[in-house]
Amino acid sequence: MTARRLLIAAALISTLFLVVVPLAYIFSRAFGQGWAAYQANILHPDTLHAIWLTSVVAVIVLPINIAFGIAAAWLVARFRFWGRGLLVLLIEIPFSVSPIIAGICYLLLYGRQGLLGPLLLENGIQILFAIPGIVLVTMFVTSPFVAREVLPLMEAQGSEQEQAAVTLGASGWQIFRRVTLPNIRWALLYGAVLCAARAVGEFGGVSVVSGSIRGQTNTLPLQVELLFNDLNTVGAFAAASTLTLIALVALAVKTVLDRQR
């Protein structure tokens, strides 16, 4: 009994210091100089543009990653083929590779001195230091999230229902929409939420390829750093608090989804 109390107390106190206080600190600093200062910082055109850009990137990345995640999960869970284990490993690579490394890779690929960069630039296609570069790096970093959530579930559920549907003469699209999708929808949503949260928050990889043009290629996390370097601490924390709010909303959605599963 005492062990139980002791452990619960230890868990609560350590979480308080490790997680809750840093979170509270962000809001305390963001609102430290009053609501007006906060509002002025959030409504600054560059910060608004950063919010817009971050949303655009997330909106582009999310559906593509969902499509990829479903395709990859379907492939790995439903079929046996040569190189399947290797493919699973490949899917998970971005999960363990540092985003910074991803950024450097993209620079070496699309940079003016890179593998494809010269060809693309000659044709007037700007990948780096523009939205496409930011989108591509974000896609790299977030690519495993949907697949990782959907794949184990599909494997656990087995394919009996789908095979039955085939026998009944259903088309591929019908099977997916009527049988598979309803089964995986919560895991899919869950993965999508994680993917969106990560896409919104990506910093390291994007910082390598963004070129930090104010009001042009600065995503919200980069804007946090930029404001911090501009000696505008309140502004940095105001932008950070927006990101924190997004994270909290994502968590709330995730917690609700957890109960649905």
Binding site: A67, L75, R78, C105, Y106, L108, G114, G172
Partner: peptide
């Protein structure tokens, strides 16, 4: 038995190839 092998393989490999492998190869 199940459909979609070619499609899912195509999508997966294209995506992994372009987004993940190609940049790693550059490095």
């Amino acid at each position: 038995v199940l459909p979609g092998f070619g499609l899912s393989m195509g999508v997966t490999l294209t995506y992994l190839g372009v987004i993940v492998l190609l940049p790693l190869v550059a490095l």
